[in-house]
Computed example of a mutant assay.
Amino acid sequence: MQTPTKSTQKSRKTAENKRQVLMEAVTSCIKIYGLEKTTMENIAEQAGLSRITIYRKYSNRNNLISNFLAYRAEQFNAKIKAKISDCNSMEQALEIYFLSSAEQAFKDESVRVLVETSHVFKTILNGEESPIKDAIMETWQPLLKKLSADDAQILKIDDSEIINWIIIMQHNFSRMAIEAECSAEQIRQYIKDFVIPAFIIKASA
């Protein structure tokens, strides 16, 4: 295997730094203008980059927003992956994942704004390729593989179908928790009473 040169490593680091600056600019713009009113011009100005530079990487606004969602999903899933990878049941993993999702939505204003929009639904229901779906798939796939060895119900459902269900439920659940101003205990109870039974019904169908 060829060892990356110093110039290659520097180029990658520069690209990663530029991506981080851009994603943080999107975060700021969503807080200032709201998701629907945030424009590529707003983001470029906030990031200190030209629109041409952004368009070289992202073909349009929807593509940039999808990548922003993936960026936030990567941050969230990096923290949660180790926790759910040790789970011995889907029920346990779902409880940890959805509780952490709701807590994140309460803490992060940009996440709260995002769960109030239909962007995620449009992406999933239209069957579009989605960076956010890829990020969540990377988190869940190892666990699904492990659990399917002992659970025939999980084995018979396509991983992509499970991920779509998790994304949509995560969106709905976080939105409900925010609107109802639920406590951690109320959130945990809702997961046990509604989210987990919904998955069991889906797996049994």
Rank of each mutant, 00 (worst) to 15 (best):
N172I: 02
V21P: 00
F68N: 06
K6H: 11
N62M: 09
K202F: 10
K10G: 04
S50F: 04
D159V: 12
K31Q: 13
A152V: 08
L49P: 00
A135H: 00
L22S: 03
A102G: 05
K6F: 13
N77S: 07
A78T: 14
E185I: 10
A93G: 05
S110W: 12
M90P: 00
S7G: 00
E91N: 10
M1Q: 04
K145C: 04
N60C: 14
F199K: 03
A149E: 15
K57A: 13
I132T: 13
M176L: 11
K146N: 06
Q186P: 00
D158T: 07
K122P: 06
D134V: 03
S160G: 11
P197T: 01
H171T: 12
I65L: 15
N77A: 07
M176D: 01
A180C: 10
V195Q: 04
E91T: 06
K81D: 10
E128R: 07
S7W: 06
Q186H: 04
Y33P: 09
T53A: 15
I200P: 01
S148E: 14
K79Y: 03
S100E: 15
A203H: 00
E45T: 12
N42Y: 11
R61Q: 14
N77H: 03
D134Q: 11
K202P: 06
F121S: 12
A203L: 14
E103T: 07
I154Q: 03
I168F: 05
I80E: 08
K57Y: 13
S28G: 02
T139D: 00
R112C: 12
Y58P: 10
Q9T: 15
Q189R: 08
N67W: 02
E16D: 12
A152R: 05
Q104G: 02
S50T: 14
S66F: 09
C182E: 02
A180Q: 15
D134T: 09
I124M: 03
M176Q: 03
E36H: 11
Q153A: 08
A135N: 00
R56Q: 15
M176R: 05
S50H: 04
G127M: 06
I136R: 10
A15M: 13
M176A: 03
I96G: 06
D193T: 05
I191S: 06
E45M: 05
I65W: 04
Q20K: 11
A78H: 12
T39I: 07
N172S: 15
I162N: 03
E109V: 10
D158I: 04
R61C: 13
W140I: 00
I96K: 11
I132Y: 07
T14L: 08
A152E: 13
L155H: 02
S89N: 01
A152S: 09
I178Y: 02
R51L: 14
I157T: 01
L155G: 02
P142C: 07
C182Q: 09
I167M: 15
T117A: 02
Q92P: 01
I196E: 02
